[in-house]
């Protein structure tokens, strides 16, 4: 076997390993139903902040804990504990992606959160209306 073949095989092997590695390290998007049905498994849940419920952030108790209620795209609500300080302008957020796991008790414990703020097109639609 020629050396170039060995190199080619090695390259392909590493590339496949990298592909599988990316896939197996990847997380899953899910709705709250699925996340709550599988407590302890990690998910990305997309949803919105439920503004009718309290947002509790008590830095003097713990500066890295925020509690709020989120509603997923199916409309299901769930109380969330986020292990982060309350982001600036959280109340204005338009869309949330929570990363974490549900607990047996039916809460969602998020270790991280991505937040999209309102897009400006909506404001513009109201121009002059």
């Amino acid at each position: 076997m020629k050396r170039s073949h060995l190199i080619a095989i090695a390259i392909i092997a590493v590339a496949i390993a990298a592909l599988i590695g990316s896939l197996s390290d990847s997380s899953t998007y899910a709705d709250l139903d699925e996340a709550l049905a599988n407590p302890g498994r990690e998910y990305h849940v997309v949803g919105v902040l439920d503004r009718s419920q309290d947002i509790v952030y008590e830095p003097s108790v713990n500066a890295s804990l925020t509690e709020f209620t989120m509603q997923d795209l199916q409309g299901r609500r769930c109380r969330v504990k986020l292990a982060k300080a309350k982001p600036q302008d959280f109340e204005r957020s338009e869309r949330l992606v929570l990363i974490g796991e549900a607990t047996e008790g039916g809460e969602f414990h998020a270790t991280d959160m991505l937040m999209k703020c309102p897009s400006k097109y909506n404001e513009q639609n109201q121009v002059g209306v």
Binding site: S26, S27, T28, H44
Partner: peptide
């Protein structure tokens, strides 16, 4: 998981 086509980027 691949079949569900709802993969998310690695959390960490």
């Amino acid at each position: 998981r691949a079949a569900r086509a709802r993969m998310a980027p690695p959390t960490e």
